[in-house]
Amino acid sequence: MTDPRDLLFSLFAVFTVACALGVVLNRNAVASALSLLLCLVGVAGLFALLDAFLLAVLMVFVYAGAVVALFLFIIMLLDVKGGERKPFGAATVVAGTLAVGLLTTGVLTVARAATPAKDAPQLVAQNFPKLKDYAELLFTQYLLPVQVVGFLLLIAMLGVIVLSKRHEGLEDIK
């Protein structure tokens, strides 16, 4: 009998890829967004199989729970029919094939020459990375990157507010 983990991995992997294809190939934007949702759930399942429960949960919490909901929201607000997409043009197909080829080459190269970076955190060595291990690293070794990313997000948020506001007479910008 095979390890149930292998079986589950195959299931989740096929599921994820199928849903990812669904995102691209679906004509209906709502259907695409829902495929993206299922795809993210599949990725979360793969993380859970790697014992990375925190990543799995955050995947569902942030991306599936909030981001895709906003996608759906915007699709529905813009177009109640769900937004039919035009069929692919020749340029899109060429660009897509090129992108897939580059990505495959990249992944293969990394997989061949896979040596973990020297200063990579030794979370994998422990059997179950605890929540606290993540927290400690985020607040010590990776404090600066976290702050920078947070700051970037803040700038993006402010940018959206400034751009989406209608400026009549440009008085309210000041």
């Binding site: 709502v30 949702l37 925190l54 729970g65 929201f73 109640v80």
Partner: peptide
Amino acid sequence: DVDVGLLAVFAVSSLGVYSIILAGW
């Protein structure tokens, strides 16, 4: 019995919004 406990509850229950969005749409 997982370490992330309550976070998982929040994560999964945040998916509840989809049924309502879909139903309404």
